[in-house]
């Protein structure tokens, strides 16, 4: 896999990092996401689900499905890249 681009080199323009760029705010956003995730799963406990399939009624099924779909997608795509990648001027 390609080396990841360096995380936070100083902005070439030299101006102040904006709100979404400050590490503190990034941490806050991540924390917010986690809180929302927990809340969404927790909500499953407080109402009776009306899924069409039995497995839909498992607590947190959609959460797991979403998470692993995403991870699977990204990992498979990463493998596909090995076969499909070409230089940008390939067709020229």
């Amino acid at each position: 896999m390609e080396p990841h681009p360096p995380q936070n080199p100083p902005p070439p323009t030299g101006d102040e990092p904006g709100w979404p760029e400050r590490p503190k705010n990034v941490r806050r956003l991540i924390a917010l996401t986690i809180v929302l995730c927990v809340a969404a799963v927790a909500a499953d406990l407080f109402y009776s689900k009306h899924g069409h399939y039995g497995f839909e009624n498992i607590t947190g099924f959609h959460a797991l499905y979403g998470f692993f779909s995403y991870v699977g997608l990204v990992l498979i795509a990463g493998q596909l890249r090995k076969f499909l990648r070409r230089e940008e001027d390939y067709y020229d």
Partner: peptide
């Protein structure tokens, strides 16, 4: 269910 799906994908 939709929120779960999306939020956990975001978490992923």
């Amino acid at each position: 269910t939709q929120l779960q799906l999306l939020l956990f994908a975001l978490a992923a």
